[in-house]
Design a protein around this nucleic acid. Structure first.
Ligand SMILES: [Zn+2]
Ligand SMILES: [Zn+2]
Ligand SMILES: [Zn+2]
Ligand SMILES: [Zn+2]
Lengths: 138, 138
DNA sequence: TGGTAATTGAAAAGGTTTTTCAGTAAGCTC
DNA sequence: GAGCTTACTGAAAAACCTTTTCAATTACCA
């Protein structure tokens, strides 16, 4: 997702587009890994010192509410935030060297249908992470 | 996983088996959905008022360290804990209220085999998170 | 049945996140 | 562009959540 799209979504939902929000969104987009609010604040303040920590929290809450970021739990009992990719989100991860390979042909839609009818959940997207060893590390 | 197994693992790792820890473990096992420390404390105190909130936190940290529970992020910036099923751990997560339900019959082993032969990865475990709306929120 | 070291609950401390509030600025109308 | 309105901002305070401290208790081993 591009920052233009996120900003358009913000404006369309009635939120004002402030320079602080733009800085926060661009910084979050610029990071490949999930950032905690504190980490995001550290990064943002380098490019835009007018951004306060409180605004980072507020902006993350708005983006989260609009479904534009997804929340992942990090090691230290703090949530991390990452811009949500469109569609599904599947990874093959090497536990040894950390290499990540994306794949799409996951074929879990059949499972989704079955679980939807069993549990009553309306399933919208998914994320499948497979852990193991890459050819180099195996 | 049964409470006997968890208790054996605790003892084997050098931890003492106290009535408080047993109450906490049994309560966590008795819940199909992930519990926050506060929610777990509320449930435990009903069956065992000798358990303090601090001990709930301490026990969850030990179980987490031993890999016996897995941590999922809930709606309210608080982590939820759930007993880790053997092997893979797969979740159905409500984007609205944060409810987490675990399931087992995921059937991704076929996909794992195919990806293994295509990419050369040795796949050891996986995590599948399905996002959507629970029956109450839909 | 002791002895010993881990564990416990309560209180205090340490972090993280939200609320409050006066000043500021985005976005709309003219 | 100027003026209006209302949302937004940073800083401080408040509200939470989690860990640490500490004296008393207790599981577990000999
Ligand atoms: Zn590797
Ligand atoms: Zn997929
Ligand atoms: Zn729900
Ligand atoms: Zn699975």
């Amino acid at each position: 997702m591009r920052s233009d799209e996120i900003i358009r979504r913000l404006r369309r939902s009635g939120y004002k587009v402030t320079p602080q929000r733009v800085s926060i969104i661009k910084t979050l987009l610029g990071s490949r890994e999930a950032l905690t609010p504190a980490a995001l604040f550290q990064k943002v303040r380098l490019v835009d010192p007018t951004v306060g920590e409180v605004t980072v929290y507020r902006t993350l809450n708005i983006l989260s509410e609009l479904g534009l970021v997804c929340v992942v739990s990090t090691a230290e009992n703090v949530n991390g935030y990452i811009v949500r990719p469109g569609g599904h989100h599947d990874h093959l991860i090497c536990s040894e060297c950390g290499k990540v390979v994306d794949f799409r042909n996951c074929n879990v839609s059949e499972l989704e249908k079955r679980l939807a009818s069993e549990t009553g959940f309306v399933i919208k997207e998914h994320r499948l992470d497979l852990y193991g060893l890459c050819p180099q590390c195996a």
